[in-house]
């Protein structure tokens, strides 16, 4: 599934530079605890989270994740967007909550 398809399924707004939307992600995880992401999410390319801070981006960076989706319509501050652009992490925000956003991606084939 491409990032473009993820954004369409979640009706999500892309917040970072929109030049890598054809990036393919083949698995995802949803969590607000970054230590859980660091412990259990190796190999996942997409993080869905309600945690809006720089550490969400840094965690994605450490895990080689390609994109982060903020849930419940949360919008990050400019410093978070700047860091994501700098580290090649695509940011999106969706109005769905974490449970629904994960469910929508799951039933569309992203496991």
């Amino acid at each position: 599934m491409t990032i473009q398809q993820v954004s369409e399924i979640l009706n999500a707004e892309v917040l970072t530079t929109a030049d890598k939307l054809d990036t393919v992600v083949d698995s995802a995880c949803g969590a607000d605890l970054m230590s859980d992401v660091l412990a259990f999410s190796a190999g996942h390319a997409l993080l869905l989270t309600g945690l809006i801070n720089l550490q969400a981006i840094r965690t994605a960076e450490m895990m080689d994740m390609r994109a982060v989706v903020f849930v419940r319509g949360k919008k990050p501050t400019q410093d978070i967007i700047d860091l994501a652009n700098d580290r090649d992490v695509i940011l999106m925000t969706t109005k769905h909550n974490l449970y629904a956003a994960c469910g929508l991606l799951y039933i569309n084939g992203l496991h």
Binding site: D32, L33, M34, S35, D36, L38, A39, T49, L51, N53, Q55, A56, T59
Partner: peptide, 9 residues
């Protein structure tokens, strides 16, 4: 609040 402190460090 940062997403840490869950005893996984």
């Amino acid at each position: 609040d940062l997403g840490f402190g869950a005893g996984m460090g």
